[in-house]
Design a binder for these strands. Structure first.
Lengths: 131, 131
DNA sequence: TATACCGGTATACAAAAGGAAAGCGATATA
DNA sequence: TATATCGCTTTCCTTTTGTATACCGGTATA
């Protein structure tokens, strides 16, 4: 009843392969937004308040201005962060998480939850393998 | 009271920068497991039952054996999938999601939820920008 | 004048991810 | 003998991602 006789079975009968993949698009979107070497750290940095460019850079060792610039732009495009320009002399610029950006919080919390369990499991597993 | 006078503020006072980054490691783990061009599709394919190598490949247009092989290995290492070798002639091989692999479901659902809202928001936004 | 900070950009390069195509040993089919 | 299927691996190549470094115009500070 559960062996190898399901050669044609793929998706639930009401979904074509194409529809299945379509379901994955939003998942990929969410994943893309969080992916990239510095995104999470930058988002985390901004959850603690408005920050200036150099300030973020100083907080995150190894982060180059090019990368920071690029990632901040992506956050802006996705409306997760805003760039404020203050009319001082010289101009002061600050980046801030938007309320929308803060809606990522529960999602990141879920990732953290699963990731924490996974760390325990895999580390425990590798200990066992040689014991 | 919320302008530029918080130059030293970074993390909550009880967390050092190092501790903050440590909190991000499990999040990155979870992200890494789901990242990669074909992972989600492969996982999805396996949620509908055991599958043989070529079978998965046929279901996912564009997926090369090299990539499939690589991604399946990663799933195995993380104990999200198992590789069964049946003693037939020639040997038959099947891949299956583990119960542990199925624990990804709620996480993927969360990603889907957020991603769906985000799609709507960004698509609506880009319509507005030229209207 | 020289130095440093600000908010970045530009250029060149290296590393990682992914794609295209061929091939391998085995079995089956004609 | 020639062809095809299975479960992959290998090699070479392109694209994407990230790094290193220098630089820009502007202001401030010595």
């Amino acid at each position: 009843m559960e062996a190898t006789e399901h050669d044609k079975r793929k998706c639930p009968s009401h979904l074509s392969t194409g529809e299945c993949n379509k379901q994955l698009l939003p998942v990929k979107d969410a994943l893309d937004i969080l992916s990239g070497k510095w995104k999470l750290q930058i988002i985390l940095s901004l959850t603690f308040g408005k920050k200036r460019f150099r300030q973020i850079q100083r907080e995150i060792p190894g982060l180059t201005p090019k990368m920071l610039s690029k990632e901040l732009k992506e956050l802006e495009i996705n409306e997760l962060a805003v760039r404020h320009v203050y009319d001082t002399l010289p101009v002061t610029i600050e980046y801030e998480l938007t309320p929308y950006g803060r809606t990522l919080k529960p999602l990141i919390a879920e990732l953290h939850k699963w990731g924490t369990k996974h760390r325990k499991r895999i580390i425990a597993g590798s200990r066992k393998k040689s014991g």
